[in-house]
């Protein structure tokens, strides 16, 4: 099962400003499970790309926060998730047909129980 996870940055990722609860380790784990990962944030796309590179993560996509629908049209997946810490994250996610998780809930990595990941130890 193909899953795409989009992360907001500020207030969501540990390298955000302010730092959020989602760690690079969680992102790497999602990537190891074959999920598509990337960011949709109010940071400019070029800055998002630079941030992922700085942390040695090859992001599948970066997009402005209102660009989730465009991300969806670019990638075929069974489930689309967006993780964020603001009302605007929720609004843009729902408008684009993404399931939305608040960053403080998402630190439990709810995606690990989705699809094939359920079978993993």
């Amino acid at each position: 099962m193909a899953i795409l996870i989009s992360f907001d940055i500020d207030g969501t990722m540990e390298f955000g400003d302010p730092p959020g609860g989602i760690t690079l380790e969680m992102v790497r784990r999602a990537q190891e499970l074959g999920f598509l990962i990337g960011s949709c944030s109010d940071r400019p796309p070029s800055a998002q790309q630079a941030l992922w590179e700085k942390h040695d993560i090859r992001a599948d996509f970066v997009a402005p926060k209102h660009g989730l629908d465009e991300v969806k049209s670019r990638f075929e997946a069974d489930d689309y998730l967006h993780i964020g810490d603001r009302d605007t994250d929720q609004q843009f996610a729902e408008r684009a047909g993404f399931r939305f998780y608040w960053a403080y809930d998402a630190i439990h990595e709810p995606w690990l129980t989705l699809g094939d990941a359920q079978d993993l130890p």
Binding site: P44, P45, S46, A47, L51, P64, G67
Partner: peptide, 12 residues
């Protein structure tokens, strides 16, 4: 991080 023209044009 610097801004690019594309960043500006794609901002919400």
């Amino acid at each position: 991080e610097p801004l690019t023209v594309e960043d500006y044009l794609s901002a919400r």
